[in-house]
Simulated assay, not measured.
Amino acid sequence: MICERDDFSLTGPLHLTSIDWANEHHRRSVAGSLVQGIYVAERDRQLQRDGPELALSPIWSEFFHFRLIRKLVDDADNSIFGGIYEYKPLSQTVKSMELSPRFVVAFRGTVTKVDSISRDIEHDIHVIRNGLHTTTRFEIAIQAVRNIVASVGGSNVWLAGHSLGASMALLTGKTIARTGVFPECFAFNPPFLSAPIEKIKDKRIKHGIRIAGSVITAGLALAKKATQHYNQNDRASPAPPDPFAALSDWFPRLYINPGDHLCSEYIGYFEHRNKMEEIGIGFVERVATQHSLGGMLLGGKEPVHLIPSSVLTVNLSSSRDFKQAHGIHQWWREDQKFETKVYQYK
C-alpha cells in the first residue's frame, strides 16, 4: 500500500506549475520537495519500487525540472541518505532564472524503517555528541559538495535537508563557508540541542533563564580559552582569527516550527541576542552564542547547530501534534502563515 506522504499527486506542491526563483515560497517549496524526493527514494529502495511504473521518487524532482543524477549511499547499510539534483529547466516556464541553482544537494532525515533505522539513529546520536563530522556519511557528502562547488561555483549550488539531513546540510555548508564560499542552504526543522526553554510561557522567567545560561556559558568559555593560552605559553602571540565570526556573512535559511521541540530553540537563540544588546550586555552573548554547555562538557567540536547569522522563517500556524510540527510537508503548504527575520552576527 502506498503511503500518502510519498505520493506527489496527493501531498506535493501541485500548485507550483510555474516557478519564480525570486519568490521565497517557490524557493522554499522546491527545496523541500527535493528533500522529500530523497526520503521517497530510500523508501522506494526498501520497498523495491523499481522502474518508472513503480518508483514514486522521480516526480518530486522532475515536476520542477530537476533530475537526480547521483544518489549518496551509506557505506554500511546501502541506504540512500542524500542525492545530487541537476536543474534542466524549460525556459518558458521560469522567472528570475539568474537566481536558480544549477545543482541541489539534498539530505533526508531519519527513516523509521528496519532497513535504515539503526544507522540513522547512530547518526542522530552523532549529532547529539557533536560528532557528525566524524562519520562516513559526512565524508561522502562534503566530497560531493566540494566537487560540485569546484566545478560550477558556490553561487550555483544549493544545500537542503530536513531534521538529521538539516544537520548534514548545515555542517557541509559551514565547512564550505569557511573557505569563503557561501552556498545557499535550506535547513528544515534543524535539531537544536538544548533544554526546551522556548516552551516556558512566562517571558520574564524565560529571559532570566537565558541570561543566566549566557553568563555561565560565556564564563566557562573564557576560562577555557585562558587556560589553553596559558598551557600553550602563547600569551604574547596575536589572537587567532575568530572562526565563528568568519561565518557571519553566510546566511543559511532555517525553517522552524514552534511546536517542534527539536528545533524550536533556534527562535530564542537568535531573539536572545537582540535582548542582550538592548540591556547592554551584548558582549556576553557574543561569547555565549558560540558555545554550548553540552559541547564544552563533551569536549568535542563546535556543535553543528550554532551559527552566527541566518534567515529564520517560523511557521506561525498551529500544528495538531509533534509529527505535523516536525514534518517537511508544512513548508510548501499554501495555508500556512510564515514569518521571516534576518539575523546577523556582529
Rank of each mutant, 00 (worst) to 15 (best):
A144Y: 12
T135P: 07
V145C: 10
T136K: 15
G109N: 05
S155I: 09
L132E: 07
H123P: 08
T112L: 03
F107D: 08
T135F: 05
R119A: 06
Q143L: 15
R129G: 00
S155C: 12
L132F: 02
V152L: 13
A141P: 13
S155N: 09
T134S: 13
A141N: 09
R108T: 02
I117M: 01
G131M: 03
F107C: 05
I148T: 15
N156M: 10
V111L: 10
D120R: 01
R108W: 02
S155P: 06
E139D: 10
G109H: 03
D124W: 00
I148S: 08
I142W: 00
V114Q: 15
W158F: 06
R146I: 11
Q143G: 13
G153I: 07
T134N: 08
A141M: 15
S116W: 01
K113C: 04
E139N: 12
S116V: 00
I148L: 11
I140S: 13
G154W: 13
I142P: 10
K113P: 01
L159N: 15
L159T: 11
T135V: 04
I140P: 01
I142F: 03
V152P: 08
H123E: 04
T134P: 03
N130E: 05
G153L: 05
I125G: 00
N130G: 03
